[in-house]
Design a protein around this nucleic acid. Structure first.
Lengths: 246, 246
DNA sequence: CGTTTAATTGAAAGCAGTCAAACTATGTGG
DNA sequence: CCACATAGTTTGACTGCTTTCAATTAAACG
């Protein structure tokens, strides 16, 4: 198996972790004609209003989904970590309802859009895994809506940190209580419906209380249970596809 | 065709409006073993944490999706109108991440869960229509997140009113500029991340400016373009499945 | 009709935003 | 390797949108 198959293997593993895939399903995925591309930070993969052309998966680095109001205010509506599919949300859309952009330098695996749609029609198990991925993302957005709508800045920020940690850990990345936050405070604000200034104050306040420690953008929780309580964080919504694999 | 087939016909039409269905697809749907039930206002169809048992479609009346923080604050994360599927969001979940509840007295068509999953596996066109329905709901939640995160109370409320009107009209319900709002001001607040008191003030302020007229819960827009501008409303996100049918 | 639920209104308090400036990284070219 | 430029972080003072608390009025319901 050639070197270039590794990215497709990553895709197979991700989908198989959502719903069981048999050998034929896996083989069909591995036969996809995928191209790996490296993208600079802040590169747009999809722009609102445009027809989605690509079908990409994040191999390394981070990406975000965002929407803008007409007067330029930005809301980040999703955060993607390595392994995440980037275009399932727009699989059948003729115009994107949001922008997708890299957060850091990132590698993506680009797969032909029609090929994916064909797999969905011919291989129910793959269709099912993709649907579970879509539903799982939707559950996360609902939790974000609760977070932004009903939690104060303290809980809101803590919740985002908890979710990020939980998702990274769920996919075998990073240590138990520390990770490099790939976002500026302005971006954090845009994800939380807050201003960068207030994010800064909230972050420092959590730090002053000893809930977390920071070194640059590296954040470390001193007590997972404590920040979890502050965040009102429950992992329930992250498993909205059943617990297969891993 | 028996009287009791009418509800299934409504389901067929809704799905066909999302993605083309041939005669076999339609026949397969009509063979579903559906039961119509009438539910009182505030009846729970799904509770957070529980395994979804039903697979229901709203025939008449309104329903909502909601999540709660641990200290009891509520966020409404979705509003469903007649014709909407209620359980696709939990199709493969083993535990619901949110509650689904009737808003008004409502009639639902309940269909066996396994039968729907089987249709998805055997009829790609139906699977596709369902996926588009799911993606369309997800796009609405993203817009709500932008709304709650980045618009002030005025625009936020106006946006909800615009969306509601647009969705009702898209499915052939209600007049061009007036409709009966099926929610209390407290529920509006829970959908918008505001308090009931502030919803009241905002509503009255819009009324005082002549943007809208109210009689009880009936709301009428005096100038659609004006409220649309206030709301920063664009219908783009409501068509995230392509423009088939109608 | 009495009772409960929802809508209104006023006054006061607070969380988060705005504006502006200083400070600190990070990166680049000489 | 230093000087400068740029992006990001931090801090303070002030403003303001929204909440909170409480009381009143109106509407819906049995």
């Amino acid at each position: 198996m050639a070197e270039s198959d590794l990215p497709l293997t990553m895709l197979v593993q991700r989908l198989a972790s959502l719903s069981p895939l048999d050998d034929d399903d896996r083989a069909a995925l591995l036969e996809l004609n995928g191209a790996v591309r490296t993208l600079e930070p802040a590169t747009y993969l999809i722009r609102e209003g445009e027809p989605p052309r690509t079908n990409a998966f994040l191999l390394s680095g981070f990406a975000l989904r965002q929407k803008l109001t007409s007067d330029g205010a930005r809301q980040i509506v999703g955060l993607q970590i390595p392994g995440d599919p980037l275009d399932f949300q727009l699989l059948y859309a003729d115009a994107a309802d949001h922008n997708v952009q890299t957060l850091t330098r990132a590698q993506v695996l680009v797969v032909p859009r029609p090929a994916v749609q064909e797999l969905i029609e011919t291989r129910p198990a793959i269709a099912r895994a993709i649907m579970i991925s879509i539903l799982s993302d939707a559950a996360i957005v609902r939790e974000w809506l609760l977070n932004v709508g009903r939690r104060d800045s303290r809980a809101r920020l803590a919740h985002l940190l908890c979710e990020f940690t939980a998702r990274m850990k769920a996919h075998g990345m990073d240590g138990p209580a520390a990770y490099e936050l790939p976002m500026t405070q302005e971006q954090l604000g845009d994800a939380l419906g807050l201003t960068a200034v207030h994010v800064n104050r909230t972050l420092r306040s959590l730090e002053a209380e000893g809930v977390l420690t920071r070194r640059g953008r590296r954040v470390e929780f001193n007590d997972w249970e404590r920040i979890r309580r502050i965040a009102d964080f429950s992992e329930l919504y992250l498993h909205s596809g059943g617990d297969h694999a891993r």
